[in-house]
C-alpha cells in the first residue's frame, strides 16, 4: 500500500523489496478497527450529537405544524410547502417523505458538510493528526477510514430524520395502506420498504458533498475554515442551481437530481433519475476523493 505514502514513496516504490506486512487477516481487522475508532470519535463529539439532535427535532416540528394546521378546522392550508406535506394527514408514513424532502436541500447536507469538513482539518488543528500518522495509521488508510465514517454519518443522519419522522407520523396521524404517486395502493409494509429505499437514495445523494467536504478538509489546517467553506460551497451551489441563465451548468451540480427519490414512490419505479443521481454522486466521489488523496498523501503535516 505504499503508493499511499508521501510522494517520494511512489517514485521509489519499484525499488523496494518484499514487505514484511502483517498477516492479511490481521490487517483487515486493523482497517476495520481504525474505522470503528474513527466512527467512535466522530459520534462522541458533542457537535455531531447536536447536529443529529437537530435533525431528529425537525420532523417533530413539521409533524406538529401539520397537525396544528389541520386540527383548527381549516385543512386547506395555502398550496406551497415541502413535497408530500398534504398526504401526511391521511397517512403518517408520508411524514417520512416530507421530512426527507424538507431537510435534503439544506439541513442534511449542512450536517454532512460540517462533519466532512472537520474530518481531517479538525484533527490537523488539534494536532492529533500527527500522532495518528506516526502511529502509523498510513495516510491512505486514514483518509479511507475518514471517508467511510463520513459515509456512515450520511446514512445515520438520514436514518435519524426518517426514524424520527416515522415515530412522529405514527404518533400523530393515521397509518395504513399507502397510495403511491401513480395512484396504486400498496400495503403499509411495502410502504416502509420504500421509505427505507428512499432513505438510502437520500444517503447516496449526500456522498458527492461528503467527498467535496473531505477534499476541502485536506486543504487547510483549520477545522472551522473547512466546515464553513464546505457549507459555503453547498449554499453557493444551491443558489447557482436556481439561476436559469446557468441552465447548461445545472446537470453537473451535485444537487441536480436530489429530489429524484420521489420516483421511488411510483409503480413501477422510475429508475432513470435515481440512477443518474447515483452516477453523478459517484463522479463527485471519484474526482474529489482522488483530489483529497493526492493532496493528503503529499502534504506536509506541520501542525
Amino acid at each position: 500500500m505504499s503508493p499511499a505514502e508521501p510522494a517520494t514513496a511512489a517514485s521509489e516504490g519499484a525499488a523496494t523489496g518484499p514487505r514484511s506486512a502483517p498477516p492479511s487477516a490481521a490487517r483487515w481487522w486493523w482497517t476495520f478497527g481504525l474505522l470503528r475508532s474513527e466512527l467512535g470519535v466522530t459520534l462522541r463529539r458533542w457537535r455531531t450529537l447536536a447536529l443529529l439532535g437537530i435533525l431528529a427535532a425537525l420532523p417533530v416540528l413539521i409533524g406538529i405544524a401539520v397537525k396544528v394546521e389541520t386540527g383548527d378546522g381549516g385543512g386547506s392550508g395555502g398550496g406551497e410547502g415541502p413535497a408530500f406535506i398534504h398526504q401526511v394527514t391521511n397517512n403518517g408514513l408520508f411524514l417520512v417523505f416530507t421530512a426527507l424532502a424538507a431537510t435534503l436541500p439544506f439541513f442534511l447536507p449542512m450536517t454532512v458538510g460540517v462533519v466532512a469538513g472537520d474530518s481531517v482539518a479538525g484533527e490537523a488543528a488539534a494536532g492529533t493528526l500527527r500522532y495518528l500518522l506516526v502511529a502509523p495509521a498510513g495516510r491512505s488508510r486514514l483518509l479511507l477510514a475518514k471517508f467511510a465514517s463520513v459515509v456512515v454519518f450520511c446514512l445515520l443522519a438520514t436514518l435519524v430524520v426518517a426514524a424520527s419522522a416515522l415515530l412522529v407520523g405514527v404518533a400523530l396521524f393515521p397509518v395504513g395502506d399507502v397510495t403511491l404517486l401513480s395512484g396504486v395502493t400498496v400495503s403499509f409494509g411495502e410502504g416502509l420498504l420504500r421509505a427505507l429505499a428512499i432513505a438510502l437514495a437520500v444517503t447516496v445523494s449526500l456522498l458527492g458533498l461528503a467527498a467535496l467536504g473531505l477534499f476541502v478538509s485536506t486543504l487547510t489546517g483549520s477545522g472551522i475554515a473547512a466546515m464553513s467553506a464546505t457549507v459555503g460551497l453547498l449554499i453557493t451551489v444551491q443558489i447557482l442551481a436556481v439561476i436559469p441563465q446557468l441552465d447548461a451548468l445545472h446537470p453537473y451540480l451535485f444537487p441536480y437530481h436530489w429530489l429524484s427519490f420521489a420516483d421511488l414512490l411510483r409503480a413501477p419505479v422510475l429508475w432513470d433519475d435515481v440512477l443518474a443521481n447515483a452516477g453523478l454522486q459517484a463522479l463527485y466521489v471519484a474526482v474529489f476523493g482522488s483530489a483529497a488523496w493526492a493532496r493528503f498523501t503529499s502534504r506536509d503535516i506541520a501542525a
Binding site: P22, S37, G40, V41, L132, A135, P136, A137, G138
Partner: peptide
C-alpha cells in the same frame, strides 16, 4: 485507545 487503534 484511539492512538493504539491507528497502529497496524
Amino acid at each position: 485507545a484511539r492512538f493504539d487503534a491507528a497502529d497496524p
